[in-house]
């Protein structure tokens, strides 16, 4: 088990050197969400500033983590070198863990950059419950990474991009992010609760400003954990068998 983590770290470290500056990571993972972060932070958004700041964080984390995971698997599938990786004496979960570590790191980078921007624009980052904020950042990054991992392992690289973008953009609009709760018709609201982004965002909201939109923070924390374990289970049971390198 310990050796497994060491090997996962080894893969992760090599991935970093290879992929951290790749164009899709920079454009989709950093530039795009930071644009939104800026837009929200400078008040072009329709809602009050402090409402939009957690959203900025969520979007930054969502796009940063999903982009690196996508690239770190899709590029390897496209070049075919993933075959070599799977051939080596590693277990599939070690490969998966390495990719998720990348998503986690990028989630933190995304949040860090968003935080920097908001700090600079001095909108008073509360950080009332720093641990809850950190929880959301960590579990959120992992959940987003796992979703990406499933998509990109399951599908060929090109359709994977399309599906990933559908998922990400659906979350932007229906996942409790860009469209604030009061503007979402009540009939659609239950649908919103299906997306993990709602809980990540609510926890950011709570961590920063001690408030939430949809569900109380402890329920959010539990739901995110359920997401996490379900995704790990699905990934473990299905993904590795249907792998199409």
């Amino acid at each position: 088990m310990r050796d497994g983590f060491v090997r996962a770290w080894y893969i992760f470290y090599y991935d970093l050197k290879k992929y951290y500056l790749k164009a899709p990571v920079l454009s989709w993972g950093i530039l795009f969400p930071l644009t939104i972060v800026l837009v929200l932070g400078t008040g072009f958004g329709a809602y009050t500033y402090s409402r939009m700041i957690p959203v900025g964080f969520t979007i930054a984390v969502l796009f940063a983590s999903t982009s690196i995971v996508h690239v770190a698997v899709a590029f390897e599938k496209m070049s075919g070198s993933i075959n070599q990786l799977l051939f080596l004496p590693v277990k599939s979960w070690e490969v998966a863990l390495a990719k998720i570590l990348g998503g986690l790191l990028y989630g933190f980078i995304g949040a860090g950059l968003a935080g920097g921007i908001y700090y600079y624009l001095s909108h008073g980052l509360g950080f009332i419950h720093p641990l809850i904020y950190l929880y959301s950042l960590t579990i959120g990054s992992i959940v987003f990474s796992l979703i990406t991992l499933l998509i990109v392992f399951w599908l060929d690289p090109v359709p994977a991009v399309a599906v990933l973008n559908i998922v990400r953009f659906t979350m932007l609009f229906l996942g409790g992010l860009l469209i604030p709760k009061p503007m979402i018709p009540p009939i659609i609201r239950p649908l919103v609760l299906f997306f993990p982004s709602v809980y990540v965002n609510d926890l950011f909201n709570y961590g920063l400003y001690n408030r939430y939109d949809y569900v109380d923070p402890y329920t959010s924390m539990i739901i995110l954990l359920i997401y996490l374990f379900t995704l790990v289970f699905v990934a473990y049971r299905i993904m590795l068998r249907i792998l199409k390198p």
């Binding site: 070049s79 075959n83 051939f87 080596l88 004496p89 590693v90 599939s92």
Partner: peptide
């Protein structure tokens, strides 16, 4: 027992593809 098995096998793929860069 993937890991144990993998230790004992060498493979030349039909189209050897490695990290191009």
């Amino acid at each position: 027992e993937k890991r144990k098995a993998s230790y004992h096998v060498g493979w030349v793929p039909e189209l050897p593809i490695f990290e191009p860069d």
